[in-house]
């Protein structure tokens, strides 16, 4: 593809806000054309996007090709599911001799689920980040599959079949989230907050170290930067946000099963990030919409829709190296001397 002059940061920001506005207007538009079912589909897309954005932080900026990111989505989802299950059954969850009461309150369950996902990411990260390259891909995959089989074996929580929830989490005791549109806006709001926060993060000292380590780890160490601890911090943060995506996913479906952690789901997240554009944060949102949109359309045409989707992905990887995001709005302007490239 021909080189294009990069758009100014202000124009890029404008385009991104326009995208956000479009997403905000989606539910009333869908209601207007009498297709409210698509609000549910769009909600699932936003949740997928949230998980993909968290992967983009470590993949696009940190250069960590995690093939096990769905594990953290699954952990967040199972924390939600298991606590809801105990709340429904009325018996406390016994954990290392500690009785944890079941609960459905989002204000407690969601942060808790994120914390548990963060701890899982921290532990897996400590071990995985000792490796690099292909070994990192394989070891993250292996840990995710271990968790997958662990959950398959948990008969108390449905094993292979998973758990069906009685309803969505409550917010301060109200069933706010039961409403389709409200839930959509909660997902959109959380996604927007995460994207904005990550945007700041990647331009901070922390973010520059993370990106520097992706470009040249040896140089960063020689400069005096203990690269691994910054990578681990990013990996843990990404795990926590993936956990939030899991929470939302389980609330949306009112169902959780080990499929959430399956390696194909990790692969799907990678596809979304690469399709949308690595290292852009907004790209994965675009990628999620295009991937799920294509699935929806192609599945209506033929049951062998993957045969079409596969080559499309190959074409994107070959011809739109910066992903759809880079293809649509061009490369990010290079950070120049006065720091104006920061968008």
């Amino acid at each position: 593809m021909a080189e294009r002059a990069p758009l100014s940061p202000r124009v890029r920001l404008g385009l991104h806000l326009l995208g956000l506005l479009a997403l905000a207007l989606l539910p009333p538009l869908l209601t207007l054309i009498d297709e409210p079912f698509y609000v549910t589909l769009a909600t699932r897309v936003l949740i997928l996007a949230l998980a993909a954005v968290s992967l983009d932080l470590i993949l696009g900026y940190g250069g960590m090709v995690s093939f096990g990111h769905a594990a953290f989505v699954g952990v967040g989802g199972y924390v939600t599911g298991i606590l809801a299950h105990h709340a429904f059954m009325g018996d406390p969850l016994m954990l290392f001799g500690l009785a944890v009461p079941g609960m459905n309150e989002a204000l407690i369950v969601w942060p808790l689920a994120m914390a548990v996902s963060a701890v899982a990411a921290l532990l897996i990260g400590v071990l995985s980040l000792r490796t690099g390259g292909i070994h990192f891909i394989m070891i993250t995959l292996a840990f995710a599959q271990m968790l997958y089989y662990l959950l398959v074996s948990l008969q108390a929580y449905g094993g292979d079949d998973g758990l069906t929830l009685w309803g969505r989490n409550t917010v301060a005791g109200t069933d706010l989230l039961a409403d389709r549109e409200t839930f959509y806006y909660v997902c959109l709001g959380l996604l927007a907050v995460v994207v904005l926060a990550f945007r700041r993060l990647v331009d901070s000292r922390f973010g520059l170290v993370l990106q520097g380590a992706r470009q040249n780890e040896r140089r960063m160490r020689a400069l005096g930067v203990p690269v691994t601890r910054y990578r681990l911090a990013a990996f843990t943060l990404a795990g926590a946000v993936a956990g939030l995506a899991g929470v939302l996913s389980v609330n949306q479906a009112e169902f959780v099963s080990p499929t959430l952690l399956h390696w194909t789901h990790s692969g799907e997240l990678l596809v979304v990030v690469i399709l949308g554009g690595m290292g852009t944060l907004v790209g994965p949102v675009l990628g999620a919409f295009v991937l799920m949109g294509l699935e929806e359309v192609l599945a209506g045409v033929t049951e062998h829709w993957r045969v079409i989707l596969g080559p499309v992905l190959v074409l994107v990887v070959l011809y739109a190296r910066a992903g759809l995001h880079g293809w649509v709005i061009g490369p990010r302007r290079h950070a120049d001397a006065d720091g104006e490239g920061a968008s």
Partner: peptide, 16 residues
Amino acid sequence: QAHAGHSFRLIRNARR
């Protein structure tokens, strides 16, 4: 930056 203490500074734009 590498010699200016740790880099766990997450919010302020380091390029400015």
